[in-house]
């Protein structure tokens, strides 16, 4: 097992390096730079622009810029944002927890809605309620999360005269305010995943219910509740856990849109801002951290597989 993990960690290095090279080149290809943005519409003097570019080090060839950046990175320095002049590490450390708590909250919503409803749909298979739940899944999967977000805001302000609290609220600092702030965004973000979880739960529970050991459990006179809760659900949840692990990356992507709509100061808004302002050091840092996170998540899922299925540990 240890060898498996170590091997995967070694592979991590070239992947992250690849991410950094690719993101650097991509940035190089986007037309316009931070000087164009900062000068706005009120300038066009090439001499002034060149002067400003020099201040930002943009007059250097791209390879030199990459080498400098990589050198700093090896010293643990991600540089400073071109625009705010704050250290990139500080910017990311402020934003990352916001995105993390949003995605985790969305995950909680997905599981709390998806699992019980999926179970219900399986147990009451063939009933009108089950069909209705099937319809609900379809709606959940089809509704775009940004649209749902806007509707939730409108609904709350017009009918409840309430607007979610704003600002940098973290669950471990201001639990109540943070939960209020996260209620709608996590619902908007988690609903599609909830629909997926529900469908997966339903299928898996149905599959397990058809197994011999379930029949045996029933035959020995176990109450239906015990059969479902103890034997069926537990075994059915393994694929659901896999699904959730794999979809975490999708949630991180969805968070970009949701953060924009609900004005949450997370990684999503940071990424949009840094692209719009051509803030290269900041964007580089975000892409590096984001890429590494996804790679680590995949590693974690792989390790879980390894733990669950000994055949994969070779």
């Amino acid at each position: 097992m240890l060898r498996f993990v170590v091997r995967r960690l070694i592979v991590l290095v070239p992947i992250v390096l690849g991410v950094s090279v690719l993101s650097f080149l991509l940035l190089y290809l986007i037309p316009g730079d931070v000087v164009d943005i900062l000068m706005g519409t009120e300038s066009g003097d090439p001499a002034r622009l060149a002067e400003m570019r020099k201040l930002f080090g943009l007059d250097q060839p791209v390879l030199v810029r990459y080498a400098t950046w990589l050198g700093d990175l090896l010293h643990g320095d991600l540089g400073r944002s071109f625009v705010t002049r704050r250290p990139v590490t500080a910017e990311i450390l402020t934003a990352f927890p916001v995105t993390l708590q949003l995605t985790v909250a969305a995950l909680v919503v997905a599981l709390m809605v998806g699992v019980p409803l999926g179970l219900l749909a399986a147990v009451k298979r063939g009933s009108l309620g089950s069909a209705a739940l099937g319809g609900l899944v379809l709606v959940g999967l089809s509704v775009p999360n940004f649209w749902l977000g806007i509707l939730l805001i409108l609904f709350a302000s017009l009918y409840l005269h309430w607007f979610p609290p704003q600002g940098l609220l973290l669950v471990w600092q201001q639990p109540l305010e943070a939960v209020k702030q996260l209620a709608f965004p996590s619902l908007a973000l988690g609903l599609a995943l909830a629909a997926m979880v529900m469908r997966m739960t339903r299928t898996c529970v149905l599959e397990v219910l058809a197994q011999d050991y379930v029949r045996t459990a029933r035959a020995k006179g176990l109450a239906e509740r015990g059969v479902i809760g103890h034997h069926a659900l537990r075994n059915a949840l393994i694929p659901v856990v896999t699904l959730v692990g794999l979809q975490f990356g999708y949630l991180l992507g969805g968070a970009i849109v949701i953060e924009e709509i609900f004005s949450l100061p997370g990684m999503g808004r940071l990424v949009l801002r840094s692209i719009a302002q051509r803030d290269y050091p900041l964007l580089q840092g975000i892409l590096l951290v984001g890429g590494t996170t996804i790679v680590l998540l995949n590693l974690w899922v792989d390790i879980c597989y390894g733990l669950l299925d000994p055949r994969l540990r070779r």
Partner: peptide, 19 residues
């Protein structure tokens, strides 16, 4: 100062009295 990019969200906030 709250930074709310989406105009409909801004309008909702002022209607709800949050802004």
């Amino acid at each position: 100062v709250r930074i709310i990019k989406d105009e409909s969200a801004r309008l909702s906030a002022v209607r709800a009295g949050a802004v």
